[in-house]
């Protein structure tokens, strides 16, 4: 039998590490919910956020706050600019889903090639040393990084929740995601809402990349793996259910951590895709348990072209 302390340790570390994926999933899932798009360009924004912080900290030798601000501004503006000059143009042309798919994926790839050219393929960390002071509480090692990560994720997700619940702008977001056309009739600009969403996604991405870059090495290619994990969590949580997606991200990270006990680490990535497979074939609308729990938090998914539309006539 495995020592309960070990299990607890795995649980804690897994949960703390999941903060990164939680933030990225919220960014990805929120965008999917509001705009209806699977925005893979977010991989590019992740790269931009990380290397902006890296540049300010290491080449310019400026303090952390400046770096964070630079990362946030760069990621959010990249995200908003993509919305304004890319996605809006495609929307105006009534492009199909494949067009959006190519555009976001190619844009991400383009950004990553540029970053490769500028910064090389070596893994980089934000600080020279990524050792984080550790304290032992009840037999479990808890590092400063862990605390920082969990706090950041909890605070940001809570803020988003309050934003969606309590502010006018947040209500607009929910309205547009439910029915963009109807929302426009009530005088809410979908365009503006999409841009606000893009900016929020940029902030979440920057926070996640700060955590990622203070924990281990980041290469221009790592954002791709991250965006794919976010896609999987979004699917598991169910499209349009942002907070269920965040929960799915935690569960995924925990399952991956605990799987070390049973299977070799080589198969850990595969496990992630195994979940993706099962979700896609068995739970095309996400896991229903999560739906019950999060009904209050997230509105039901916007369905795509289901035959029920036919009944509206006559």
């Amino acid at each position: 039998m495995t020592d309960p302390i070990v299990l607890l340790q795995i649980f804690w570390t897994g949960a703390a590490t999941s903060s990164i994926l939680v933030l990225l999933t919220v960014a990805f899932s929120l965008t999917q919910k509001v705009t209806g798009l699977w925005n893979f360009a977010q991989a590019g924004f992740m790269g931009i956020a990380f290397y902006a912080m890296f540049y300010v900290l290491n080449d310019l030798q400026m303090p952390l706050l400046v770096a964070l601000a630079a990362g946030a501004v760069c990621a959010a503006s990249a995200s908003v600019l993509t919305e304004v000059f890319g996605l809006d143009v495609l929307r105006a042309r009534k492009s199909g889903s494949l067009m959006f798919f190519i555009f976001t994926l190619i844009l991400a790839q383009f950004i990553i090639y540029v970053l490769t050219l500028l910064f090389g393929t070596e893994p980089q960390t934000l600080y020279k040393s990524i050792m984080s002071p550790v304290r032992i509480i009840g037999g479990i090692a808890i590092s400063n990084w862990d605390l920082q990560a969990v706090t950041t994720a909890v605070v940001m997700v809570t803020l988003l929740f309050l934003f969606l619940k309590a502010t006018k702008e947040g209500q607009f977001l929910v309205a547009v995601s439910d029915n963009a056309k109807l929302a426009e009739l009530y005088g809410i600009s979908a365009k503006r809402t999409y841009r606000v969403t893009a900016a929020i996604a940029g902030l979440f991405i920057c926070a996640a990349m700060y955590l990622s870059g203070t924990r281990g090495g980041v290469t221009p290619n790592s954002p791709f793996e991250l965006v794919l994990a976010a896609t999987i969590a979004t699917l598991l949580g169910g499209m349009g259910r942002v907070f269920a997606g965040a929960l799915a991200a935690v569960v995924l990270a925990l399952i991956q951590s605990f799987s070390v006990l049973v299977i070799s680490s080589r198969w850990q990535n595969l496990l992630l895709y195994g979940f993706l497979f099962v979700t896609i074939t068995l739970f095309p609308r996400g896991i229903t348990l999560a739906r019950l729990k999060f009904k209050a938090a997230a509105s039901p998914p916007v369905s795509v072209g289901k035959p029920a539309d036919v009944t509206q006539a006559s």
Binding site: W38, T231, I280, G305
Partner: peptide, 18 residues
């Protein structure tokens, strides 16, 4: 229905390659 094939095929592609 809908755009689901896009997502399902993405999962198929990623999973099988893995």
């Amino acid at each position: 229905a809908g755009d689901y094939l896009l997502i399902a095929s993405l999962g198929f592609q990623l999973g099988l390659l893995q």
